[in-house]
């Protein structure tokens, strides 16, 4: 009978520091990767940065990890399409840029289309963007955030607010 090697046996033969050194390291990401031109542009010049009165869809979402906040408002026209957007974000560059980029994609869309963009964005942040994700526009610049797992939450915060807002709007009687 062949004896199975114990799980630790192989490791024990390697001094601990060789083991640490042989561990695969995450690839180095150049800093301008996360803070690229497009991200910084949306951060410095956020689109739709406003507060609108009598919004139809409205939601605010907090990141409990840091207290950051994204507030989204949508006004719908007679055909149920987005006619006005109010977006505000208090927090890091990624939350602010993501809020601006997301809202930029919503003009003239129906709520179903808005929800589809949201789903596509969430999927792309989780699994990576594909060839058919071009309609995400500037949001694709946030793909770099996937290399900083703790920051993905920042990028998705405005989307979570948007989803909650749509859910509340649809649940409203009448």
């Amino acid at each position: 009978m062949k004896l199975r090697q114990s799980p630790c046996a192989k490791l024990d033969t390697i001094p601990i520091f060789d083991r640490l050194i042989s561990m695969p390291q995450l690839p180095d990401v150049p800093l301008d990767g996360l803070y690229g031109d497009l991200v910084m542009d949306h951060y410095r010049n956020p689109r739709n940065h406003a507060s609108i009165s009598d919004a139809d869809v409205e939601a605010e979402e907090f990141n409990p990890f840091c207290g950051d906040r994204a507030t989204l408002q949508l006004k719908l026209d007679g055909q149920g399409r987005v006619s006005e957007i109010g977006a505000r974000a208090d927090g890091c560059s990624i939350i602010q840029a993501a809020t601006s980029m997301l809202c930029d994609q919503l003009h003239g869309k129906s709520l179903d289309e808005v929800a589809e963009i949201g789903e596509r964005f969430r999927h792309a942040m989780k699994n990576g963007a594909g060839d058919d994700d071009l309609e995400l526009g500037d949001l694709l610049a946030l793909q770099v955030v996937r290399q900083y797992p703790v920051r993905i939450k920042c990028a998705l915060l405005p989307l979570t607010a948007l989803e909650e807002g749509i859910k509340a709007y649809r649940a409203r009687p009448g």
Binding site: V29, Y35, C66, G67, C92, S93, I94, Y148, R151
Partner: peptide, 19 residues
């Protein structure tokens, strides 16, 4: 923002808490 400070420092091997 502190998060951005934290990420840029981490890129240089510096561990601080942000939040």
């Amino acid at each position: 923002h502190p998060h951005d400070i934290g990420t840029i420092l981490d890129e240089q091997g510096i561990a601080v808490r942000t939040g």
